[in-house]
Structure formats: structure tokens, C-alpha cells
Design a protein around this nucleic acid. Structure first.
Lengths: 212, 212
DNA sequence: GCTACATTGTGCTCGCGCGCGCAATCACAT
DNA sequence: ATGTGATTGCGCGCGCGAGCACAATGTAGC
């Protein structure tokens, strides 16, 4: 890898990929940074800068080949292969995650589901037999799974995450409302709709009480 | 308001509030920036800087009163009142949102649910009678609702968001996988688990194929 | 083949947020 | 009262990411 690439840049790449997906569906062959930027609410310079970290994919005077750039970015992100994922927590939230159809078409397949509740363990949810959290180490020893989704209550989340990390999981999508601690080599992203709402109220409130 | 407050600071405040909630449950009376920082993975200086935008809440040599700081921050964010929210999209995802119990205890009450599917409109979901999207303007005219949750498919999301914005909604929590366009006065936050996974694969992949 | 035009790739600057380091300040012991 | 120790509040510098502006370069027309 040439030089250090900022995290924010990596975060934007999937957004670009998705826009390119749309463009391809629309039958577009080429696109320039200007138009791509307008669609995504990003400056054209930003896009060109981001892409320049990885190579030279455009043609001066023309723009970028939609199909080519899309494939290139998918390669960079590692989206050309399928990623097995384990889910921990099969309560209300976990079931919603299992039922959500958005992961599979993007190459993320939930291959195992775990829960600590003995009433849930052994039952079949969305075609998967739920296994006990206690069997996590063994199961992760069998099949190499590097990504996990955590959908357990806040109190048990850190414990579950520790187990996952200890057993080779390198990336975690965390739905639990906690600030989890993980070693630096492990990536973690939080999904927290309540936090999102709670920060937006500040601005709504500010608009109501005009500049006191 | 004294001087301009960075968005990132506002985003962190709810996280502080949550940590203070925990501390209060644990029966703690005071906490210093050091400990708070360790819990949240944030530097103590960061916390003190953030708080200094709004006032002087700490006592030198002691730290912060848990209850006092919590209340102060909730006041700043506008979390002391209840916020009515409308939900648009009562498909699989929307139902999960309705069923999710995490909003209500934090003061966000979903007061109306809308959908465009005539098979869904009129049915009762989680105690709410689903109304037609066409009736959004009228309904938003009746009760003053400033926050909305969008859980419709990508293709209709921008249209729905335009309607919401045109009818006074000032903050949107968007589950649809699009980069929506809204006027600058409107806040929007995206919840997108797929994007989160897709950016993490980059790092997992990088760890596998060591350097080059 | 040569010219005109469009758009990329990138060196550079600017602004902003993060964290250091210390003076100010408060609690508490004596 | 006075001194000691701890922790805040904040001025300041640093580093990094965002965007500007232009040179480099490919395309298309004639």
C-alpha cells in the first residue's frame, strides 16, 4: 500500500460504488467527477482526490468508465468475494437483522446465529438453527469467519465482543448502545439510531428558540 | 449561543449523556474527565473542551457532578421534552422500527405511520393505524411534528423526503440507502449497516494479504 | 496530423478540530 | 486561616483532511 489512506476516504468508497451501481442500471457508460459529486453531495475535487489514492482510473476530457471504476472500487474494498458473517443476539433486533434482505445481495451472508437465552437456542429462525453463545469459540474454530454483527442488550455486549475478538473476528457491526473496547487491529462500527436522533434535536431546538 | 459549535461536538454529547446514565445507575455521584474518557474511548481533554463550549460544569479538584452534568447536557440537547416523530414506510424495516423499544424511553414517540401500499394502509401495526403517504401534508398540518424516520425503498425515498421537508420536518433519520438531498436548514442522518460493513471489509482484506 | 476542448490528477493552502500543557480554582486536611 | 493536592478550563500549536487552481493529458473534430 503506497501511503496511509485516511479512514474517511475508505468510508466514502462504498458510497461511490452504490452511485456507480445506479448509473450502470441507468445504462450510463461514463461519468465525470462533477456529476458524481452532485449526486452524492460531495465536491468533484474530493472524489478525484479520493480516487487518486488508489490509482488513475479516469480519462482526461471524458471522465470515468462507470463499469470500470465500479469494478476497480469493488476490488479495492474486497467486495468481489462473499463474506460470511455471524450474528450474535436473536432477540427482536437480531430477528430484524436476519430478516433484512439488504445484506445478501451485497455479498454478506449470515452463516450462523447465536443467543444466550436457552428458550431461543435450538429454534430455527430464517432457516438458521440458533446456537448457544457458549459454543461460539468452537464454531468460530471450525469455519473461518472474520465479521460479526452484535445485536445483544447493552449489558452483555462487551462480553460478547470480547469473545468474538478472542476468536479471530476482525470487524464488528455493533447495534448495542455501548462504547465498546476493542484492540486497534479490530474494526468496529456502531449503528445507533437513538444517538442520531438525540444529536439532531439540538439543531431543531436551536431553530425554534431563535438565537437567544 | 456564543460561538459556532462544531457538529462533531454535538454528536458526542448524547454519548456523554448515556455514559452519565450508567454512572448514575451505578450510584456514582461524581466523575472526572479521565474516567469518563476511559469509558468512552475519548481523551479527557476532548471531553473538557467539548463541555467548555457550553459552560463550566466541573469543580476543580473534584470533577463533575454526575446528576448535574447529565441534566445540563440533556437540557442543551433538548432531551428534557418529548419529541413526536412520524414514520414513513411500514414494510419489513418500518415494522422493525415500530417494534423497537429503544426510542420511547428516550423520549421519541412515533405518533403516526405512513405507507404508500394500499394493502398496508388502514391496517393496525403496533397500535398505530397506517395512513396513506398522500395524506402526509394534511396530517403534518394538524399536529406539529419536526422529526421523521424514513424507512421506504431507495427509489421512493427522495420523493418522500421532499414531502417531509416541504411540510416542516426539520430532522430526518434515513434508513433508505441513498444520498438524499435536503436544504441546509434540515438535518439528516443516515443509518446504513451495509455501508458500514462494506468499508470494514477493506481493512479485513488488508490484514489478510499482508502488505502488497 | 493538428487544433480546440474538456476533464483528470495533484501540489499547495487554508481551516478546523484535537490534544498538550499550564494557570486558575476548588476541596480538604491541618 | 493556610497549605497541599487534584482536576478543571482554556490558549495555543500541530496535523490532517478538504478544496482550489492549474498543468498534464486524453478526445474529438476537421
Amino acid at each position: 500500500m503506497p501511503l496511509e489512506i485516511p479512514d474517511v476516504v475508505i468510508d466514502r468508497l462504498p458510497v461511490y460504488v452504490r452511485a456507480l451501481d445506479s448509473l450502470e442500471e441507468e445504462g450510463r457508460d461514463v461519468v465525470n467527477s462533477q456529476e458524481l459529486g452532485e449526486r452524492l453531495g460531495v465536491t468533484p475535487a474530493q472524489i478525484r482526490k479520493d480516487l487518486s489514492y488508489f490509482g488513475r482510473f479516469g480519462k482526461q476530457g471524458r471522465g470515468y468508465s462507470v463499469a470500470r471504476l465500479r469494478e476497480e472500487l469493488r476490488q479495492i474494498l474486497g467486495l468481489t468475494r462473499e463474506w460470511p458473517v455471524v450474528l450474535v443476539g436473536v432477540g427482536k433486533l437480531g430477528r430484524a437483522v436476519l430478516g433484512y434482505g439488504g445484506f445478501t445481495p451485497q455479498g454478506f451472508r449470515i452463516v450462523e446465529a447465536f443467543d444466550s437465552d436457552s428458550k431461543i437456542v435450538g429454534t430455527k429462525v430464517n432457516g438458521l438453527v440458533v446456537k448457544s453463545v457458549d459454543s461460539l469459540p468452537q464454531e468460530l474454530g471450525k469455519v473461518r469467519v472474520e465479521m460479526a454483527i452484535v445485536a445483544v442488550p447493552a449489558v452483555t455486549a462487551q462480553r460478547v465482543i470480547d469473545i468474538l475478538v478472542a476468536n479471530g473476528v476482525k470487524a464488528i457491526l455493533n447495534y448495542a448502545p455501548i462504547a465498546a473496547h476493542v484492540p486497534p487491529r479490530v474494526r468496529i462500527k456502531d449503528i445507533d439510531p437513538v444517538l442520531a436522533l438525540q444529536s439532531m434535536t439540538f439543531y431543531v431546538k436551536a431553530q425554534e428558540s431563535p438565537a437567544k
